[in-house]
Every structure is written in structure tokens, then in C-alpha cells.
């Protein structure tokens, strides 16, 4: 049986059937985000919107249900279960989500139209920027003509220089250079917390 279909059925059952379904979910293996992407081919037509993917800002939290206003006007109801992975600068739990957060989510559409989340990425951004200045605890980036402050988070922020493993030392970035920064946006600001910077050393 296809693993991804098993996981999808269990996510749906977890939302509708209670905690008994979670025994089966862990028996299938890891609940980490990578396990949600077991081998398979997506059925969505090229160029088309993905009905199992949500984007928007959290406008309400009702128990384990996220009410999300999509940027295109769609109103999403996203159900987060023990089988869902949540990322907010780092892997975390549902309790870290706040009203006002932006998010992307992928999961399974349920008969009531809600989305049972496989994975939720809160405030995640992946920006191509120029390095304007580097301070001890922050890097200032230029993004499309606007300034973004990237906060260095001790124990979390890391840099990948060329093809080396991630390291905590961000000082090897060069002012004026072009880098890619993966991080978590701080809502309603021009600031992000840095998860990973990809740069040439």
C-alpha cells in the first residue's frame, strides 16, 4: 500500500476519529516533515492551484483549528493534529502559532472542506537579498529595494558557505554580496529571524 496514502488516511482519521488513529500513524514511522513527503507523484495539473495547499494569515485559533485568511480571499480552516509537523523558525508545536502569523500549509482536504495539515510552515520566508551591513546580532539585507533586518538567533541561526555543513558563524558573509536567507518573518515588521543563510565564502 502506498505510504503517502496511508499517511493521508491517518491524518484524516486523526481529525475525525480521535486519538486511536495516532497509534497507526507512529507505527508507519517518523512524523517529521520529511516523512510527509514519501515517494510519489503529485496529481495536480502543471500551472494549476493545489487544492491541498493553503497560504495566508492566521485570523483565529479555535482549539486545534486555525482560521486563515488567504491572500487571494480564500478562507481556510486548517486542522492541526499530533500527526502534523509545525515549523516556526525551527520545528515546534501548535502552541507556538499566534493570530497574525503568516503560513503555508500542506495536507489533506476533508469532506467538510477543511485541510488536515501534514505540515505547517509559520512565517517562513526564503529571500534572495544583498547584504547591506553586518552587526553582532543582526544582518541588514536589501530586498527588492527595501531594507530587511535579519536577527541572529543564538543556537538556531546558521550559515552554509558554498557546500560546507551549516555553521553558526555568520561573519564570513561579505557586505555587498548576494545571499539566500531562509527565516521566520516577524509579523507586521520589516524584520526576520534567521534560520539559514546560503552564501559564497
Amino acid at each position: 500500500m502506498d505510504i503517502s496514502m496511508d499517511r493521508r488516511r491517518l491524518l484524516g482519521a486523526a481529525v475525525l476519529g480521535g486519538t486511536g488513529a495516532f497509534v497507526g500513524a507512529t507505527a508507519l514511522g517518523s512524523l517529521a516533515p520529511e516523512a510527509a513527503f514519501a515517494s510519489g507523484t503529485s496529481e495536480v495539473a502543471p500551472g494549476a492551484p493545489d487544492p491541498d495547499f493553503a497560504e495566508g494569515r492566521v485570523t483565529g485559533i479555535e482549539g486545534t483549528l486555525l482560521i486563515v485568511a488567504g491572500s487571494d480571499g480564500t478562507r481556510w480552516r486548517i486542522r492541526v493534529t499530533n500527526g502534523s509537523s509545525v515549523w516556526k523558525l525551527r520545528p515546534t508545536t501548535f502552541g507556538a502559532v499566534r493570530v497574525g502569523d503568516g503560513l503555508y500549509a500542506r495536507g489533506v482536504r476533508l469532506p467538510d472542506g477543511s485541510l488536515a495539515a501534514d505540515a505547517v510552515w509559520v512565517n517562513i520566508v526564503n529571500l534572495h537579498v544583498h547584504v547591506a551591513s553586518i552587526a553582532r546580532n543582526a544582518v541588514h539585507f536589501d530586498h527588492r529595494g527595501k531594507r530587511i533586518v535579519g536577527w541572529v538567533v543564538p543556537g538556531t541561526s546558521a550559515a552554509v558557505y558554498n557546500d560546507t555543513p551549516p555553521i553558526a558563524d555568520l561573519s564570513l558573509m561579505k557586505v555587498g554580496s548576494h545571499v539566500q536567507v531562509l527565516g521566520a518573518w516577524i509579523p507586521d515588521t520589516n524584520e526576520i529571524e534567521i534560520a539559514t543563510v546560503y552564501a559564497a565564502a
Binding site: E34, F37, V44, S85, W87, Y104, R106, A119, W121, I124
Partner: peptide, 9 residues
């Protein structure tokens, strides 16, 4: 995200 986790970058 259909290929892998967004946090992979």
C-alpha cells in the same frame, strides 16, 4: 512543498 519541506530551503 510537494517535493520536500519548505524549511529545507
Amino acid at each position: 512543498s510537494a517535493l520536500g519541506s519548505l524549511s529545507s530551503g
